[in-house]
């Protein structure tokens, strides 16, 4: 079913060239370039204020770059967005969990872009939602109000929405914040399935142990892309020191950094 599969178009999913973004004359990201292929899980690592959110916003077309270009699936961003190629999975803190919608309705929202103006679900939309909910093991909870889910189930509901959308690129904002170890394992399994399907995932994370455990690639960012590429070659102590402003960190599988060293007690 074409609508449920990632939009395949060459091997390159994300291509950012010499991207500059400014807010009211203040440079947030300067001359950033990176390329990600299909079937990649990429960690986005940097301090608070290093430009992670700005890069996500730019990839979703929310901020207009002052210079540079972005292409997704080989298409200019506007076209890629219209094709619903990019899905964003928000941080759980930014969602109103008391909102009167149930799980099924939330996942159906992933299909809105493909529906007519009245957003009346067609059989194909219902099928896509069912499949997405089955994959994250939430179909039996579809009638629950979204806030009645547990923390891990909430995360999975939003992953299901990105799946139902048929996105080939998923941007995940701190997906492991506040989840228990079991949910984390389940989510990583899902991410690995998505990779096998040829989707590209970009995951912003403060937990460096994730980078080595399941991310093929890593993008280190501090106002610009300092380095990107294979985790084994990029994720070095020297590069991390650059990323975290001189803070020496061992690139060990268990390392965790404080989100914002400047505010550390």
């Amino acid at each position: 079913m074409p609508s449920r599969q990632p939009h395949l178009c060459g091997n390159e999913r994300i291509s950012v060239r010499h991207l500059c973004v400014e807010y009211h004359g203040v440079v947030a990201v300067h001359d950033a370039s990176l390329h990600l292929n299909a079937g990649t899980i990429c960690a986005l690592v940097g301090m608070n204020g290093a430009g992670k959110s700005t890069l996500f916003k730019a990839l979703m077309g929310f901020v207009r770059p002052s210079a540079g270009t972005i292409a997704v699936n080989g298409l200019p961003l506007d076209q890629a967005r219209r094709a619903r190629a990019v899905a964003y999975v928000p941080q759980t803190e930014s969602v109103d969990w008391n909102f009167p919608v149930n799980v099924h309705e939330v996942v159906m929202m992933g299909r809105y872009g493909a529906m007519n103006l009245l957003r009346i679900p067609r059989p194909v939309d219902r099928e896509a939602v069912k499949e997405a909910l089955d994959r994250v093991e939430l179909w039996h909870l579809r009638d629950r109000q979204i806030g009645a889910l547990s923390g891990g189930q909430r995360k999975r509901a939003f992953l299901a929405r990105a799946l139902a959308q048929g996105a080939s690129v998923m941007l995940l904002d701190e997906p492991f914040n506040g989840v228990d170890i079991r949910t984390e394992k389940l989510m990583i399994e899902l991410f690995e399935q998505f990779r096998r399907e040829g989707r590209t995932l970009m995951i912003s994370t403060h937990d460096l142990s994730h980078v080595t455990s399941f991310c093929d690639q890593v993008v280190l960012i501090n106002k610009t892309v300092l380095a990107y590429g294979e985790t084994s070659s990029v994720f070095t102590s020297e590069n991390l020191a650059l990323t975290f402003g001189g803070l020496r960190l061992e690139a060990s599988p268990t390392a965790t950094i404080d989100p914002d060293p400047r505010q550390a007690p």
């Binding site: 077309g61 928000p90 929405r161």
Partner: peptide, 22 residues
């Protein structure tokens, strides 16, 4: 009535609304 679902999505999750082109 015509835009009720778009408006609902806009109230619930404007970021997602924008990312799918609304």
């Amino acid at each position: 009535v015509v835009l009720r679902k778009d408006l609902l999505l806009f109230c619930f999750d404007p970021t997602h609304a924008r990312s799918i082109g609304l």
